[in-house]
Design a protein around this nucleic acid. Structure first.
Lengths: 188, 188
DNA sequence: ATTAAGCGAATGAACGTTCATTCGCAAAAA
DNA sequence: TTTTTGCGAATGAACGTTCATTCGCTTAAT
């Protein structure tokens, strides 16, 4: 079976790209951490650029499946928001390095067309949710992209603050912040 | 005079480090963009690492002076928040590349002790503002670091969304978002 | 005439990538 | 059963390139 080593390489690359960035990580370093020879990486990926794109797609797809796809369309808008928030946080808890990797490599210029297409696909469920909520007058009269950027930005801000040691993003804080942001977003 | 070329080098480095990252930018590239020889960079900075630290400090100091230092301590808390928001946005408008550079290089491992000390110094005025507001019961009973991370994160989220073309962060939107965030933060 | 500033070719280390070779194992031959 | 053959996966030394940094020289200033 060939899957074993390929996964090892992707896992090693995830850690190193997240810690030191794409250009700050060398192929020999990835090979060493993965426990394979440098040449082996090239029997699984055409180039360093193909590797980072494969990793980006694997990680982003996981996030879409676990956090964004199949959000409930029924129930109250508040409940839908709760579901989105909870799943997003669950994904970040389960895959903190993956989440950080996606943030760090967002719109990087070595991402190819296929990877960029995934970015848009990820935003679609949120955009649909906000559009529906806006149409029904449940959220503030602020443009959907702006609300999205605010809420997403706040979430990322909290995750980064935790990573740097400024706070602990535990369940209690998550509930408080969710309530705070909903208060900000909901129509008055 | 030596200042002319030094500034040119710093300006070139700011643009390139922001566009391609620290490891993605070479010294010869910086030299070419600055219109100086590669060797000249080394008569102004000991190394690439010293250069990025000098640039970080120059940029962060500007942001502290223009946006964070000397915030009003009198007046209503709402007015203080308005002042903070307005100055932050003014700085980002005046120096978009500088703002992006600081975001990108936040807590990077090639920053030295002096540079990291500036990060804390930058946060002090905001922390003081939030502590005072919290003591007087004007803001939500959520920890100050969490409120800070949320508001800062939302701001950064909007700036990033604009850079990528998802929205236009104009005065009207800025006012709407400021009001929205204050609504979220203020005590109920 | 002396000094300082700037230059850019030169340097060695490290990079991404290649490729001749080896390895481990399953199927075929004995 | 034991041996041989064949093959894809894995290896790591070696390649050309690019990197950060140095240094002997030229130019300009005093």
């Amino acid at each position: 079976m060939t899957g074993g080593k390929k996964e090892q390489i992707l896992d090693a690359a995830l850690t190193l790209f997240t810690e030191r960035g794409y250009h700050g990580t060398s192929i020999p370093e990835i090979a060493e951490r993965a426990g394979v020879a440098a040449g082996t990486i090239y029997s699984h990926f055409d180039s360093k650029e193909h590797l980072v794109n494969a990793l980006y797609r694997r990680t982003k797809t996981k996030m879409i499946e676990q956090a964004l796809a199949g959000l409930p369309t029924g129930g109250t808008v508040r409940h839908q928001f709760h579901e989105l928030w909870t799943r997003l946080r669950a994904f970040e808890r389960a895959e903190p390095t993956g989440f950080a990797f996606l943030e760090l490599h967002h719109h990087a210029d070595y991402l190819d067309r296929k990877s960029r297409a995934l970015e848009v696909e990820a935003l679609l469920p949120i955009a649909r949710f906000l559009d529906a909520a806006s149409r029904d007058g449940h959220v503030r009269r602020v443009s959907a992209p702006a609300l999205m950027a605010m809420v997403w930005g706040a979430f990322v801000g909290l995750v980064k603050a935790e990573r740097v040691g400024y706070l602990r993003f535990d369940d209690a804080l998550s509930d408080q912040v969710e309530a705070t942001l909903w208060d900000a977003v909901k129509s008055k």
